[in-house]
């Protein structure tokens, strides 16, 4: 196994995770502008994920269709089950004004963000196993998406509204260090992205026969997460027409890269 692709993948996955910190920089946007920007960012991210999911499915179907399809069913149902078990449904409120997260729920909120990152990481790893440029592209796309995610995490946990109604907006959670500044806290939730990117990549290198199953699994999880986390939030902040246009255009651009990536 050559070290160059591993190093490239590690750097790309880490940059994608660290990009989340850019979203924590306090900028004096008014809420309307912030909503529009977030809606656009989430729509583009959703399109990229769907386009990437299409490419992963295509690669899996070419390799072993039955394993790929089984993987997609497992990936989506597993992600559904995980959300149910962790009780993260209550954070599905897609109105940016309906912050803050209840202090006692901070653990769960951050846990949900970590699961989201884990699925994204697995997608980067599987994509890189198919073709390194596809993995690097997906990591770059997720880096852009992570900036928006950092903004939302910070807004819901640290905004003035949150701290005024809950003086200890991020108080004594059981799992998460309390005194962490926003940038550090969001990076912690993004660590699974790096770990899963590398883990999935290594798993496929060691057991290449799992590639179609892994491709299907990550595609299924990616579709599910896109439709449960990204698109509802994008609709919540912006106009349908723009969400539909941006999402479709972003997906088409990724598909256009098919001849380059695969």
């Amino acid at each position: 196994m050559s070290s160059t692709p591993i190093l490239s993948l590690l750097v790309a996955a880490s940059v994608a995770a660290l990009a989340t910190t850019l979203g924590t920089i306090p900028l004096s946007f008014d809420l309307k502008a912030k909503r529009r920007a977030l809606s656009a960012a989430y729509s583009v991210a959703a399109g990229i994920m769907i386009g990437a999911g299409y490419l992963l499915t295509l690669a899996g179907l070419e390799s072993r269709p039955s394993a790929c399809i089984l993987g997609a069913v497992l990936g989506s149902t597993y992600s559904f089950w995980l959300r149910r078990v962790t009780g993260s449904k209550k954070f599905d409120d897609n109105d940016l004004e309906s912050i803050p997260v209840e202090p006692k729920e901070v653990d769960r909120f951050l846990l949900q963000s970590s699961f989201h990152s884990a699925a994204e990481g697995a997608a980067i790893g599987a994509a890189a196993a198919v073709a390194l440029p596809l993995g690097l592209f997906l990591a770059a796309a997720l880096a852009v998406h992570n900036i928006g995610e950092g903004m939302v995490l910070t807004h819901r946990l640290y905004s003035p509204q949150a701290t005024s109604s809950h003086p200890n907006a991020v108080p004594a959670p059981l799992l998460w260090p309390t005194s962490l500044p926003p940038a550090a806290l969001v990076v912690v939730t993004k660590l699974p992205q790096i770990v899963l990117a590398m883990g999935t990549y290594f798993l496929i290198q060691v057991w290449p026969e799992f590639l179609p199953l892994a491709l299907g699994f990550t595609a299924g999880a990616l579709f599910f997460l896109t439709l449960t986390d990204l698109t509802p939030f994008a609709y919540g902040q912006g106009r349908r027409e723009w969400v539909a246009l941006l999402c479709s255009a972003a997906a088409a651009l990724v598909v256009l890269g098919q001849s380059f990536f695969l």
Binding site: I69, V73, F80, R83, K89, N94, F223
Partner: peptide, 27 residues
């Protein structure tokens, strides 16, 4: 899908149910 079907579905049911059924139908 993105202009009519999904936003209408989100207004009537939890996003995770919409996501699961959409993904399974796609598969």
């Amino acid at each position: 899908v993105f202009l009519e079907l999904l936003p209408e579905a989100y207004e009537k049911a939890d996003s995770e149910n919409v996501a699961l059924w959409t993904t399974l139908a796609l598969v």
